[in-house]
Amino acid sequence: MDLFLQELINGLSLGAIYGLIAIGYTMVYGIIGMVNFAHGDVFMLSAFIALLFLLLMTQKLGMTFMPLVFVLATLASMLMTSVWNWAIERIAYRPLRGSFRLAPLISAIGMSIFLSNFVQVAQGPRNKPIANPFGKSITLTHGGQFDVTMSYSDIIIVVVTVLLLAGFWFMVRYTSLGRSQRACEQDMKMASLLGVDVNRTVSLTFIIGAALAAVAGSLYLMKYGVVNFADGFLPGTKAFTAAVLGGIGSLPGAVLGGLLIGLIETFWSAYFSTDYKDIAAFSILAITLVFMPSGLLGRPEVEKV
């Protein structure tokens, strides 16, 4: 029971990070129907930007109150990552909009290779470790096989994710930007005829996706305390897996898929073996899709003849 509770906590915080990245995938897919392969590397880039701002504030400005430094670094990273993702969309994807389906996919894969190697060249290939800004943890139960602990990082991750998702859901549901996004999702050409600025909507979608990925990047940096230029691929792939598992294009599906992948991964490591946790996550995806070909919450694709 202790192990179960502990792994539930770990799985939820990991799943929340996957969910935040998965939203970026699923939102872009919903609107322009393309798999943004570079999103995982945007997430990695955001973690690096947060790390750099964190170091700048502590070393150059001499700030010592770590929680504040962390919040400021996250906000700065959200801003700068948004600029990056805006530029990526502008350079690599917009010229290919309306082109055939595989062109933007290859462009995105190229962008992904470019970004991870760019960060490697710019920041060096070694791991970048930092100290946890919220060191302590709360002990939940005593006296069992071991003490079940919940670190402040885990609490922050879950709370921040829930708040962001609530805000995000409100935005999609009730603001004019959300309405234009949903309009573009249904029919981009019709939306543009009715006066929706499609380019602006797509740009803002990329900016929002990047901001959420930047939060995930900062939280990842805080939870694991280390980041590397190659860290974009696996979390990115897992988040994409989560988006597909939940039904790509569906926002609640992305979060559900993220939580499921996070939980599967941690429980598999706890009860079976750490070596095969990624295999477990990918296998569950394959099995789910065999029986539900459009994911858990995705709408079945009806092909019109």
Binding site: Y29, V35, R101, L105, T237, F240, T241, V244, I248, D275, Y276, D278, I279, F282, S283, L285, A286, I287, L289, V290, P293, S294, G295, E301
Partner: peptide, 28 residues
């Protein structure tokens, strides 16, 4: 065989997953 019913990007992610599964089996 398992991906016969899948289409488009679902097929893409499952084949990607299979590629990674085989690599991870070789690693582990």
């Amino acid at each position: 065989f398992p991906v016969l019913r899948l289409r488009g990007d679902y097929l893409a992610i499952v084949t990607l997953a299979f590629g990674e599964i085989i690599r991870m089996i070789l690693i582990n």
